[in-house]
Design a protein around this nucleic acid. Structure first.
Lengths: 113, 113
DNA sequence: TTGACATATAACCATATGGGAATGTAAACT
DNA sequence: AGTTTACATTCCCATATGGTTATATGTCAA
């Protein structure tokens, strides 16, 4: 069974590097698809598909303007990721170094079983 | 072409719900695989595979203890996600409502092209 | 209407995933 | 050495990607 549909989960949607780029690109300004295509150097259908995914999980909003569709990031939808990762915040100060040292110590011999 | 390998990107590794569960489970305490299996109700091979992915991207560390392998979340590796999502923080206060209203207004007629 | 423009969908394909069953392997115990 | 314990890895498979190309849909201009 593959991973749960990217269409239904913000974490999953954001896992795609291009989608993160798109979200950044649309963060502070709404833009038509053509600008995303030009700005990020992607194919138009590809951008449309990514936008569809982002729209499905509410990460972007759309608005029509003549022949254009203006997309913009919906920052609010990113918040759950922020909250989730924030839960670990207090730990990385404490753990800093410990695990890293281990990783280095083990890097040559993680063994197999 | 499918998504970039989950093995090389923390965002991608975390996209899997079980892996997030595992990270939460191992956040404050190191534990052997068997406890993860019991605690989360997953199959052992499945857990081992998830742990492998998490280890590859540095999201967990391992330590041997007799026959056991003690895993623990490396919170530091979650930090990039935190930082990334944090960049949108100032926006969600401002945008709150705007996009949401649009989404509702458009919900019935996003049109097709 | 016809035509151009902007974007969305569909169709096709190579590939990465995660689950489950079976099996391999290191460490501890006797 | 042989057995058990605790994991890791392999194999097989159904399925979800994402890219690319072709095509459909919707909107504006004449």
């Amino acid at each position: 069974m593959p991973r749960a549909a990217t269409t239904s989960d913000a974490f999953n949607a954001v896992a795609e590097p291009r989608r993160r780029q798109i979200l950044e690109f649309l963060a502070t300004q709404e833009r038509p698809v053509s600008e995303i295509v030009a700005g990020l150097g992607l194919e138009q259908p590809s951008v449309s598909k990514h936008l569809r995914v982002l729209r499905n999980v509410g990460l972007v909003g759309v608005r029509r303007h003549g022949r254009h569709r203006l997309y913009q990031t919906n920052a609010e939808a990113i918040r759950p990721m922020y909250e989730w990762s924030k839960r670990f915040e207090r730990l990385w100060a404490h753990q800093l170094g410990r695990i890293k040292e281990r990783a280095e110590a083990n890097s040559g011999n993680p063994g197999t079983g």
